[in-house]
Nucleic acid binder design. Structure first.
Length: 507
DNA sequence: CGACCTGCAGGTAGCTGCAGGTCGGTGCGCTACT
C-alpha cells in the first residue's frame, strides 16, 4: 500500500512532516536507516507507519518507562490493540503469563535495553520473525551507553541475535561523533541517513553573564515575572532546584513546582501531568524532566546551571516552542558555578585507585575471572562502596577485556588495570573537551545559532529575527504584557518595538 | 573545588568570626520489606 494512503487510514494524518515520507519509504524497502529529525518532527509516526509496511512485529527499544507507556496508550487510543510494553511495570504474574503466551499477536513490542539482556525475554523474542528493530532516542547509545547505561552498547549484539532485522534509529540531536557511535554500536554498516537540520528558528538564544549567585537568583525572578509561560528552569542540583523554587514562590510566583529524580514516582507523574494540563506554569527541575514531555506550548527554557555539553543543552532548550510559536532560551552563567559541570564529569566514572584495588581483590579471591557475577558483586560492594553506575561500568569493561584477553588472572591483571584506566581517561577527556567547547560558546562574541549549528556540522541559513543576544532580541516580544497589549490593541507594533527594530538592541 | 550551612565561642543582645561538615544529574530491573 502507498505510504500516504496508509498514513491517512491508520493514523488519520493527511500529510507527512518533512522527512517522514522518505524515512518510511526507505525502511519499507528493508534498509537500515538513521534518522535525525528535530524535536517535534514526528518520530513515532515513522516507526508506526514503517511497521505497517513490513511483515512481522516491530521491536521498539525505548529509554524510559514513561515514554513506553505513553506510546502504548497513544497507539491504543488510535485503535491499535496489538501493542505491548515489556518492563517492570508488569507484575510477576503478568510476566510469567506473557512468557508463555503467543507473542505473534503483537505487532508493536516496546522494551528497554536492560530487559533485552534478560535471557528469557531475548529467547522469547528470538522465536519471532522481527520485521523491524527500532531504537528510539538513539543518541542515548552515545550519551548514556558509555557509562550510565552500558546495556545501550550491547544493542548491536542483541540485534544480531534476533537475526539482524532492518533497523531504524531515531533521534533529534546528533553530532557526527554521536552518529558514528549509533552506527557502530547498532551494527549499522550501510545505513541510509536522513539528517534534517536541528535548527529551531522560533527559539531565540540568549546567554547572560551574571556576577554572583545572589544576582542570578534575582535575575531569574525578573525573567520569570517578565516571560509569558509556561516555562522550564533547569538546574544541575536537586537541592538548588527545590531552594530556588521555594524562593520564587516566596516572591509571589504562582503555579510553580520542582521536579527531580529524588521524588517519589507518584509525585513525578503528578507534576508532569499538571504541567501538561496547564495547571502549572513553571517547573524547576534537573535533567530528569523533559525526555518524553509532549507539551507543545512551552514558551521559555531558562538554565540556572549549564549542562556539561552542548548536546544536552540543545535537547533541553528544544523543549520550548514545539508548536512553532515564538520562544526563548536563556542561559544564566556565573563564574561561581563553573566547577559544577566539571565535578559531575569527574564523578561519572570510577577512579584509578578503585579500579586497581577491586580488580586486584578479585584476582586474589577467585583466581580466574571471566565476568563480574551478581554473587561476586554483592560480596565486593560491601567492602568497596561505589555507585551502582560505577559497578556496572566496571562489569561492562571487564567483559570487554576478557572477551579479548581471556579471563582476568594474575597474569593479565596489570594489563587489565591499564586497559580500564585508558578507557576512563579517554572518556573523561572527551567529556572535558565537550565542556570546554560549551564554555567557549558561552563566551564567544558571535552569533549563538551559528555556533550551535557549527557544532552539529551545519551552516546557518538566512538571518532570522530574534536570533540571539549577539544578533539582537527584542525581549519585550516574549513578555506576558506583550500578550495582554496585543489582545487590546491588535497587532500594531508599539513605538518601543518600532524603535527596538530600528536599533536592533537587546533588553 | 568551593559555596553554603551549622554549630559554637564570646559574654549577655544580637551579632561576628571561624572551624568543620556537606553537597554536586540522568534509569533500568530486582528484591525485601511493609
Amino acid at each position: 500500500m502507498d505510504s500516504k494512503i496508509l498514513l491517512q487510514k491508520k493514523l488519520g494524518f493527511t500529510d507527512f512532516k518533512p522527512g517522514q515520507r522518505e524515512i518510511v519509504e526507505d525502511v519499507g524497502k528493508k534498509r537500515d536507516v538513521v534518522a535525525l529529525l528535530p524535536t517535534g518532527g514526528g518520530k513515532s509516526l515513522c516507526y508506526q507507519l514503517s511497521g505497517y509496511l513490513l511483515e512481522g512485529p516491530v521491536l521498539i527499544v525505548s529509554p524510559l518507562l514513561s515514554l513506553m507507556e505513553d506510546q502504548v496508550q497513544q497507539m491504543k487510543s488510535m485503535g491499535e490493540k496489538s501493542v505491548i510494553a515489556i518492563n517492570s511495570f508488569l507484575s510477576f504474574q503478568e510476566k510469567e503469563k506473557l512468557l508463555h503466551a503467543d507473542f505473534s499477536r503483537y505487532k508493536f513490542i516496546f522494551i528497554s535495553p536492560e530487559m533485552l539482556q534478560v535471557k528469557r525475554w531475548l529467547s522469547k523474542l528470538q522465536a519471532l520473525p522481527i520485521g523491524l528493530f527500532v531504537v528510539d532516542e538513539a543518541h542515548c547509545v552515545s550519551q548514556w551507553g558509555h557509562d550510565f547505561r552500558t546495556d545501550y552498547l550491547k544493542l548491536g549484539d542483541v540485534r544480531d541475535k534476533l537475526g539482524k532485522p532492518p533497523c531504524l534509529a531515531l533521534t533529534a540531536t546528533a553530532t557526527d561523533s554521536v552518529l558514528l557511535d549509533i552506527k557502530k554500536y547498532l551494527h549499522l554498516e550501510r545505513a541510509f541517513e536522513h539528517i534534517y537540520s536541528i535548527d529551531r528558528p522560533n527559539i531565540a538564544y540568549k546567554v547572560e553573564h551574571i556576577g554572583s549567585n545572589r544576582e542570578k537568583r534575582e535575575r531569574l525572578h525578573d525573567l520569570v515575572k517578565l516571560f509569558r509561560g509556561p516555562g522550564i528552569i533547569y538546574f544541575s542540583s536537586r537541592t538548588k532546584a527545590e531552594q530556588i523554587c521555594q524562593y520564587l514562590e516566596e516572591q509571589g510566583v504562582e503555579r510553580i513546582a520542582f521536579y527531580h529524580a529524588g521524588l517519589p514516582q507518584e509525585q513525578r507523574i503528578l507534576i508532569q501531568q499538571q504541567f501538561l494540563l496547564g495547571q502549572l506554569d513553571v517547573i524547576c527541575c534537573t535533567s530528569a524532566f523533559g525526555m518524553g514531555i509532549n507539551k507543545s506550548d512551552v514558551r521559555y527554557v531558562i538554565h540556572y546551571h549549564q549542562p556539561t555539553q552542548l548536546e544536552s543543552y540543545v535537547q533541553e532548550i528544544g523543549r520550548a516552542g514545539r508548536d512553532g510559536g515564538k520562544s526563548i532560551a536563556v542561559l544564566l552563567k556565573s563564574d561561581e558555578d563553573i566547577m559544577l559541570p566539571q565535578l559531575i564529569i569527574d564523578q561519572e566514572l570510577p577512579d584509578h585507585i578503585f579500579v586497581s584495588t577491586v580488580l586486584t581483590e578479585m584476582v586474589s579471591r577467585w583466581n580466574e575471572v571471566k565476568s563480574l557475577t551478581d554473587e561476586m558483586l554483592t560480596d565486593l560492594e560491601l567492602r568497596f562502596p561505589a555507585s551502582e553506575t560505577h559497578w556496572r561500568y566496571l562489569a561492562y569493561q571487564l567483559s570487554t577485556f576478557t572477551a579479548k584477553n581471556g579471563p582476568l588472572s594474575v597474569m593479565n591483571l596489570e594489563l587489565c588495570v591499564s586497559f580500564l584506566q585508558k578507557q576512563i581517561q579517554a572518556r573523561t577527556s572527551a567529556k572535558q573537551e565537550k565542556l570546554r567547547f560549551f564554555h567557549n560558546w558561552t563566551l564567544e562574541a558571535d552569533c549563538r545559532r551559528r555556533g550551535i549549528l557549527a557544532y552539529f556540522g551545519e551552516v546557518p541559513g538566512s538571518p532570522i529575527r530574534n536570533c540571539c543576544d549577539y544578533c539582537g532580541i527584542v525581549m519585550e516580544e516574549y513578555s506576558i504584557h506583550e500578550e495582554k497589549r496585543k489582545s487590546i490593541t491588535g497587532d500594531a507594533p508599539s513605538w518601543k518595538q518600532l524603535l527596538a527594530k530600528l536599533l536592533v538592541q537587546e533588553d
